[in-house]
């Protein structure tokens, strides 16, 4: 079989002939793409459709127009509560974690080979260790057996133990710390790789051109060379910080009392799989989807402007 590689050659052929010639390409991508359509593309499109219906999985969906959207925006105080929590996670822990990923990767790269390997492991370990975040329920325990409470009492900063995971005033803050702790994931690894892949001779050339310290080197040499990594990590960061859910469920419960620490993700699960209001759950999912896409476009526009300057 001859493979249509050059553009000029393939453009002369009819569309059908092109498809026929690429048979092997289609066969190779088919298994993955079938699953991808079946479990991501179709569900996403179906969500949009179902968001205009009332659907409980038992009976056929009934078309209700914009009713679900009206309910979400006008009659559902819980929605705004969990939206606020989601935005707090997304716009507080998200950027902090992004910044920490970058700074850690940068500083790790300043150390030697062995230390670099060990430090990368340490910062990535919480993600790697999976379910280990349960240990925070002991660290943050609301009685004087909780390590953090005991420590604060000994320092006489507080006299009574604080219910970090039960008191509504502290819950979110405690969860944010835990979320930060386990947020140095794929984006962080991409940064580590980006710094290691930097051409050393560029920095040397920069030194000749008058760059005097590591700040200037970062600003004028490293950052412009990292723009693709910055974008990739931002994408990873956005999808993880809008998707906080499992940590909340295992540390403070599901759903949390009066939804005080729930996010859109856990609320969707609650509405859908506990109350079986699938139509309404899809409405909230569509909203979350739009929110993530919008944030992504915003961030990528900012990064593009910054890196081309």
């Amino acid at each position: 079989m001859k493979f249509p590689k050059k553009r000029q050659e393939s453009e002369k052929l009819s569309a059908w002939e092109q498809i026929r010639r690429s048979k092997q390409s289609y066969l190779l991508i088919a298994p993955f793409m079938i699953l991808f359509f079946f479990l991501t593309v179709i569900p996403m499109v179906a969500s949009v459709g179902l968001s205009f219906t009332s659907f409980n999985m038992m009976q056929k969906p009934i078309l209700v127009g914009w009713e679900n959207y009206q309910r979400m925006l006008l009659d559902d105080p819980v929605f705004f509560k969990v939206l606020k929590n989601t935005l707090l996670f997304a716009f507080l822990t998200g950027p902090i974690s992004y910044l920490l990923s970058f700074v850690f990767a940068w500083l790790i790269n300043e150390t030697g080979r062995t230390l670099r390997t060990i430090l990368t492991l340490i910062f990535y370990m919480p993600v790697l260790a999976g379910n280990i975040y349960f240990v925070w329920s002991f660290l943050l325990s609301g009685d004087e057996y909780g390590i953090i409470n005991a420590f604060l009492i000994r320092l006489t900063l507080i006299s009574e133990p604080i219910g970090f995971l039960t008191d509504q005033n502290y819950m979110l803050m405690a969860l944010m710390v835990v979320q930060l702790w386990l947020s140095l994931g794929t984006g962080f690894l991409a940064f580590v790789a980006g710094f290691q892949g930097m051409d050393v001779t560029l920095a040397e050339a920069g030194a000749i051109d008058g760059i005097r310290n590591r700040w200037q080197e970062l600003r004028y040499i490293t950052l412009p060379g990292m723009s693709h990594q910055l974008r990739f990590s931002a994408v990873m960061q956005i999808s993880s910080s809008f998707g906080v859910g499992a940590v909340i469920i295992s540390l403070v419960g599901y759903p949390t009392s009066q939804y005080s620490a729930d996010t859109l993700v856990t609320y969707i699960m609650d509405v859908g799989t506990t109350r079986f209001e699938m139509g309404y759950a899809c409405t909230i999912a569509v909203f979350l989807f739009a929110l993530m896409i919008a944030t992504n476009s915003l961030i990528s526009a900012i990064l593009k402007r910054y890196s081309t300057e």
Binding site: F36, I268, M292
Partner: peptide, 16 residues
């Protein structure tokens, strides 16, 4: 698909 976490499709994936 990289831009959104799978939590968005959780419900519809469940239905499928």
């Amino acid at each position: 698909a990289l831009l959104f976490s799978s939590s968005v499709t959780y419900i519809s994936q469940y239905i499928v």
